[in-house]
């Protein structure tokens, strides 16, 4: 029987900042075409996991494989090549202030020298339309957009080069519930359309229920539960139950209460 290679595979991933251990030993497999959502409280290591996969942070140990290829310790040029498979929507959108919206969306296409400027602009306008923004938005500066519009532009940028893997970092943070739902819908549609594997980190349960195929919970630098979205309410895990129901009482103690 042929075993499918996970698109993303983390084994025993460790990361510390000085004495503070953020990732203790993270194991996670994300299969091709799957939408995995990592949940966890603030400071639990979600963003650090993501940054380690992207190579923005160097792990202290463990293994990160993309399509079965080890990422830790590879040459800069190889990493750059692999990064072309990725798209990412940042928490604050992270749009480049100095460039108009269309250039933000087309940045990856131009950086990879895939298209000339005229073609890249056309693709950018099409991607903007895909996330519900008109062509007139393309010539605006990111500072002229609302938070929701910035997230849409960030999403358009993430899907512009039809990536194989898309990361979503807290995609609905700072948005009102209706706009959050619009963004969640767009994420589901765009990921399906592009046929990408998605990895999302969030603590917004409505996002989880909308976006996820599988859910994994990180706590104190370890993945304490991984399973299908529809099993999350019957996980039998006290940590999961406390988190998804948003209760103060339970095994998870907020750092501020520890004294």
């Amino acid at each position: 029987m042929n075993e499918v290679t996970p698109k993303i595979s983390l084994k025993g991933l460790r990361k510390s900042f000085g004495d503070k251990v953020v990732l203790n030993s993270v194991d996670l497999d994300v299969m091709p075409g799957e939408s995995m959502v990592i949940i966890g409280g603030s400071g639990s290591g979600k963003s650090v996991t993501l940054k380690c996969i992207l190579g923005l942070l160097t792990p202290n140990g463990g293994s990160i494989k993309i399509d079965g290829k080890e990422m830790i310790g590879i040459a800069h040029s190889e990493r750059k090549e692999i990064l072309t498979k990725f798209g990412m929507l940042f928490q604050g959108a992270a749009l480049f202030d100095s460039l108009p919206v269309w250039e933000n969306v087309a940045f990856g296409l131009l950086a990879q020298r895939l298209h000339n400027r005229a073609d890249a602009k056309e693709i950018a306008i099409e991607k903007l339309r895909r996330v519900g923004l008109g062509p007139d938005v393309g010539s605006l500066s990111p500072a002229e957009l609302s938070g929701g519009m910035q997230k849409r532009v960030g999403l358009a940028r993430a899907i512009a080069a039809n990536p194989e893997i898309i990361f979503f970092d807290e995609p609905t943070t700072g948005l009102d519930p209706i706009m959050s739902d619009v963004i969640n819908e767009l994420i589901v549609e765009c990921v399906k359309e592009v046929g990408a594997t998605a990895l999302t980190i969030t603590h917004d349960m409505s996002s989880v229920r909308k976006i996820a195929d599988k859910v994994s919970m990180i706590y104190h630098g370890n993945m304490i539960w991984t399973g299908p979205k529809d099993k999350i309410d019957q996980s039998g895990n006290d940590y999961i139950d406390q988190f998804i129901n948003g209760k103060a009482e339970g095994p998870i103690k907020m750092e501020i209460l520890k004294g």
Binding site: K51, L54, G55, L56, K80, L83, T84, F86, G87, M88, F90, Q91, G92, A94, L95, F96, D97, F107, G108, A111, Q112, R157, F167
Partner: peptide, 14 residues
């Protein structure tokens, strides 16, 4: 601080 430099890396730009 607004992660724009991280975004450059994810867009294959040094």
């Amino acid at each position: 601080v607004t992660e724009q430099i991280d975004a450059l890396v994810t867009l294959s730009t040094d």
